[in-house]
Amino acid sequence: MSLLIQHDSDAAALRRGIHRFLFVAALATLALLAAIVVRQGLFRQTTTYSFVTDSAQDIVKGQAVRIAGFRVGAVADVSLKDDGQVVVTMEIDADHMRFVTYDARVELRKEGLVGSPTLEIVPGPDKSRLAAAQARLTFSRAEGLGALANQVRDEFVPILRDIKVITGVLADPQKGLPGTLAQVRASSEALNALLANSNRQVNGIGGAATRVLGKAEEDLSQLGQTLAAANQRLPGLIDRTQQVLDHVEKITAEAEISVPPALREGSAVAADVREIVSGARQAWPIRNFVDAPAPARLKMDSDLRGEAGRAR
């Protein structure tokens, strides 16, 4: 009888243990579920924004939406409208709404040049006004590899064309590099010939100069002899010079009469000089500083030669 009583108390204890275990397990399961729900954001407050684009390329449902590189939401829906446009709806955590200004734009970017595409909300310059819930934002695609390649091609094609033209000109046998080289060769040959000719002439001049110097030496020795002879004859020459000076005095006296007309001739020469100076002034840069005169006006003279006075 006591054995049966012992058995009943063990079974009751076992039952209580099972109950406790089941209760703890249920609590753990509920906690896990709650954690999963919280983790999935079921109790999170979100705000919806949307944008319209021509193509849904690289945009998929669930794609991350970032602000300044931080994930703040995801693409909730991608739908095609009747007019062929694509409407993309995003859900953003309400906590991050403060970063989405009314003039913010959505950019589709790639992580690096070939990485996975992400949507980045770029706030606008006016931070004073935020975008309303369910607002429609503007959208743009960052230039990818294709656009970059097109840009590079646009830049390079004209350069390549120029290179083609330049190489064509250079290769031209008449005007290009071969022709120029031929001309340079011809010029250098002509220069060589000229130099050789000049060399010969300089040699000739050197020989002539030597001969002249020799002749000058001979002349100097003759001059020495002449001076010695002159020294002997000088007294007589001085007497003769005195006579000549007497003649000169006479000539001077006569010149007093004859020189004034010659001076008058000088005025004619002066007139010629004036002409020359006038001509020089025409050609010389200084004329740029001289003002041009006004048109001339000659005074009326109806009888320029006084012919009316006396009957001819």
């Binding site: 006038s278 025409q282 840069p285 500083f289 006006r297």
Partner: peptide, 30 residues
């Protein structure tokens, strides 16, 4: 100085060169 001044037309009078030459010849003739 003359050569350096030659291209400086800013200081030269406004008349064109040939007109100026004609006026000078006329004035000289007068």
């Amino acid at each position: 100085a003359g050569c350096a001044a030659a291209p400086n037309s800013a200081t030269s009078p406004a008349e064109p060169p040939r007109l100026k030459a004609a006026l000078e010849a006329e004035s000289d003739g007068a």
